[in-house]
């Protein structure tokens, strides 16, 4: 009887260990997304124009000092969004990446392949034409602008200010 209880307890113990590690590993992207959103210190659906990347920037790990970033943490639960802005010419690399709440990219565009240079996207969770379809209610958009000269830095700052997020009633 005692040995049967011991076996049952061992099985229960191992099941709890397995369940905890499974759910913790599965939750890492959600936890990290929540922390990144919280540390941004800005409301959802607004553009965060990050300053030039240096050692003072400690919001997201492994920042690239050659890039100037614009970020938007979005929430589509109350309204769709219109994202508009402008890419630089092809001498200065720029990308616009859309991430779900699992911090995995679901859509990326860059100025080397996208025409015209100005862009305007309808961000929604519903399928349709000329829209970017988010896999989750919340997510993030990251605009990366490569800066290798003072002139490119000035241009990046100008383009940072052009990126707009507008809410669109559902």
């Amino acid at each position: 009887m005692k040995s049967r209880n011991y076996i049952i307890r061992t099985i229960v113990f191992l099941a709890i260990v397995f369940a905890v590690q499974y759910f913790f590993i599965a939750s890492v992207p959600d936890i990290v997304f929540f922390i990144a959103k919280y540390r941004s210190g800005k409301p959802l659906n607004t553009v965060i124009q990050a300053p030039k990347t240096d050692a003072k920037l400690r919001k997201v790990v492994l920042p690239n000092p050659d890039f100037v970033y614009n970020a938007v943490f979005y929430d589509l639960s109350k309204s769709d969004l219109i994202i508009s802005g402008e890419f630089p010419d092809t001498s200065q690399y720029c990308s616009l990446a859309f991430y779900g709440d699992d911090v995995q990219p679901y859509q990326v565009m860059n100025n080397l392949t996208s025409q015209p240079r100005t862009f305007r996207f309808h961000l929604t969770q519903r399928n349709g034409n000329t829209v970017v379809v988010s896999p989750s209610n919340q997510g993030a958009i990251l605009m990366r602008l490569l800066v290798t000269s003072e002139e490119q830095y000035k241009n990046a700052r100008r383009l940072q200010k052009i990126l707009k997020v507008e809410t669109l009633e559902k």
Partner: peptide, 16 residues
Amino acid sequence: NLLTAQVTLFALFALP
């Protein structure tokens, strides 16, 4: 899940 967690921690907001 495991690989995604590893990439999330070591390369958050990585590009494809």
